[in-house]
Computed example of a mutant assay.
Amino acid sequence: MGVKLEIFRMVIYLTFPVAMFWVSNQAEWFEDHVIQRKRELWPPEKLQEIEEFKERIRKRREEKLLRDAQQNS
């Protein structure tokens, strides 16, 4: 019973990761589940707001660096 049990356990240990890898690399599955979920969580309107916020922060940082550089000169 010991060898059969060990073989069964090894098959289970190897099958699960290979099956998960295979499922997660299916293009249809990825499009249906992952991309759709991403669109639900972060709709394009929110992404635009985030990009605008990042741009404002970048501009402020650049202005601060310019002021600091001018003061140190």
Rank of each mutant, 00 (worst) to 15 (best):
K64T: 03
R37D: 14
E28M: 01
L14G: 08
T15E: 09
K46R: 04
A69K: 11
E51C: 04
E62G: 04
A19F: 10
E55L: 06
P44I: 02
R9F: 14
I50G: 03
M10I: 04
R56I: 13
V11P: 04
K38Y: 08
M20R: 00
E45R: 02
E51Q: 08
G2H: 07
R37H: 12
Y13M: 14
K59F: 13
W29V: 00
T15W: 13
Y13N: 13
P44V: 02
I57F: 14
R58E: 15
V34T: 12
E28W: 07
E52I: 02
R58V: 06
R58K: 13
D68L: 11
K4E: 15
K59C: 10
W29H: 01
T15D: 10
V34H: 12
I57Y: 13
L5I: 06
R60P: 10
I57S: 09
F16L: 13
K64D: 07
S24A: 02
L66W: 13
Y13T: 08
F16A: 09
T15Q: 04
R60Q: 15
L41P: 06
I50Y: 11
E63Q: 10
R37K: 11
L41T: 11
E28F: 10
E62V: 05
E62W: 08
A19E: 07
D32Q: 07
M1Q: 10
L66N: 11
K54H: 07
Y13H: 12
R39A: 12
I35V: 15
R67L: 13
K46P: 02
W29C: 00
Q71V: 06
R61H: 06
F8I: 12
H33T: 01
M10H: 09
K38N: 15
K59A: 14
W42P: 01
V11S: 06
E51D: 12
M1I: 10
L47Q: 05
I50R: 05
Q26P: 07
I12S: 06
F21Q: 06
Q70R: 11
M10G: 05
S24V: 00
P43T: 01
V23N: 01
Q70N: 10
K64M: 07
A19L: 13
Y13G: 03
P17I: 00
F21W: 14
G2K: 06
E62F: 08
K59W: 12
E31S: 10
P17W: 00
E40I: 01
P17C: 01
